[in-house]
Amino acid sequence: MSDIAVIAAAATICISAIATAWAEKELGTSAIGAMAEKESLFAKGLIITVIPETIIIFGLVVALQIIGMAGGA
């Protein structure tokens, strides 16, 4: 497997992880704020907070694709 493919796969995971973290940071703080006002919002807050996790899952899939295309794995 070429070095550049490995770096590309790693970069995909890193960048999508940062994107997820960034998005969840914004959502999480607001959700906690809302929960402090009304505790029953826990589940709704949780759902909204975890939505950006899809980003890193896509990152994972793409990274696996890159490794697969480069003939490694």
Binding site: E53, T54, I57, F58, L60, V61
Partner: peptide, 12 residues
């Protein structure tokens, strides 16, 4: 499609 992919987290 994105819902199904989301289940990749089980493996991850």
């Amino acid at each position: 499609a994105s819902n199904v992919l989301s289940y990749a987290r089980i493996a991850a």
